[in-house]
Computed example of a mutant assay.
Amino acid sequence: MHTSPKILVVTDEPMLTVNLLSELEDRGFAVEPMRPGEHRNCSHSGIDAAIFDLHHPDEVSLMFASKLRRSAIPLVTLGGCVPSNSVRIAGARNFLSRPINYDSLAELLCELISQSQTIAPQNVVAFQRPEAMSAEER
């Protein structure tokens, strides 16, 4: 049995949350959605990577992103064309603009998780397309 990598998704856009949840779960990830500001009581244990929608970054989200990054949790930020200096300062080095290419996002997450050695690379199932996975693995 494979352990699904757990991805924290921080966004205040409901449709983006739904899309990320659906697309990432279809690619073998476990997803924990969170709205900005809800992370004050969040334990980041068990999180393999985090996605932040920082199109309009706020200080609290940037501080939380920085805290995760200091804990060696890889970050991917979503937003406009170019990440702001504040996003870079928070430690987000991986940036995707919209519209999101979910295959590219899944590959990036798998690569980052493997590099961070948070989980063993052989346990990452997200490289497999859902149609290539057995019914038990889905």
Rank of each mutant, 00 (worst) to 15 (best):
S116T: 08
L105E: 01
S97V: 04
A92T: 04
R88K: 14
I89S: 02
P99D: 12
R93I: 13
L112S: 06
L109Y: 12
E111L: 05
S104I: 00
D103R: 01
N94S: 03
L96P: 06
I113E: 10
L108D: 13
S104Y: 03
D103Q: 02
I100N: 05
S97T: 11
I113A: 14
N94E: 09
N94T: 07
N94A: 03
A90D: 04
L109N: 07
Y102N: 15
S97D: 09
L105N: 14
R98F: 05
Y102W: 13
A106W: 07
I113G: 10
L109I: 07
L96S: 03
A106E: 06
F95E: 10
L105C: 04
N101Y: 01
E107S: 05
L108Y: 04
A106M: 14
R93D: 09
L112K: 10
F95R: 02
N101A: 10
S114M: 01
Y102H: 11
C110E: 07
N101V: 02
L108P: 14
Y102T: 11
L96H: 11
Y102I: 11
S104H: 10
S97A: 14
R93S: 14
T118Q: 04
P99C: 11
R98A: 05
I113W: 07
D103W: 06
L108F: 08
S97E: 12
L112P: 12
T118K: 15
E111G: 08
L112E: 12
L112R: 12
S114C: 07
R98H: 00
S97L: 03
S97P: 06
Q117A: 13
G91Y: 15
T118G: 15
A90H: 06
G91F: 11
T118S: 14
F95M: 08
P99I: 14
Q115L: 01
N101C: 01
Y102Q: 12
R93E: 13
P99V: 11
S97H: 10
E107Y: 00
I100F: 02
D103A: 06
R98S: 04
A106C: 04
F95N: 12
E107Q: 10
L108R: 03
